[in-house]
Design a protein around this nucleic acid. Structure first.
Length: 108
DNA sequence: ACGTTGACGGTTG
DNA sequence: CCAACCGCCAACG
């Protein structure tokens, strides 16, 4: 597989530390495609089929909202994983998102 | 080949 | 704070 945009997305997502989260836009921007944040989301769809497994539950939108929870089985699994890592989720939204936010641009 | 959809983000009202 | 709109571009039917 070529060094595709998706591969880079997966690479960054795997680098997300446990108990931390990031946003699609941040990843897109880190890959130099800030305007193609949607592509990051599409890459996450592939994440379910990709190997090794991608911790997609650590990726949320810019508001810290679990917009893609319905892609999990069951849809509540995403929140379950986050809370299991010590992240508090209220109303499908990450609490203290600003503090838990992991910026790939700052780390890479 | 074409139109629609969408795990987004930012701006405007 | 909430709703509507736009841009951006790959994937799907």
């Amino acid at each position: 597989m070529d060094a595709n945009f998706y591969e880079q997305v997966y690479e960054v997502v795997r680098l997300i530390p446990k108990g931390r989260v990031t946003s699609y836009g941040a990843i897109a921007k880190a890959l130099g495609a800030a305007k193609s944040s949607r592509m990051v989301g599409h890459a996450m769809v592939y994440a379910g089929s990709a190997t090794p497994k991608i911790p997609a539950h650590r990726v949320v939108n810019s508001s810290g909202l679990l917009t893609g929870r319905f892609h999990f089985s069951p849809p509540t699994l995403m929140q379950e994983f986050l809370e299991e890592e010590g992240i508090t989720v209220v109303n499908d939204k990450i609490k203290n998102f600003k503090q838990l936010f992991w910026d790939p641009l700052q780390e890479l």
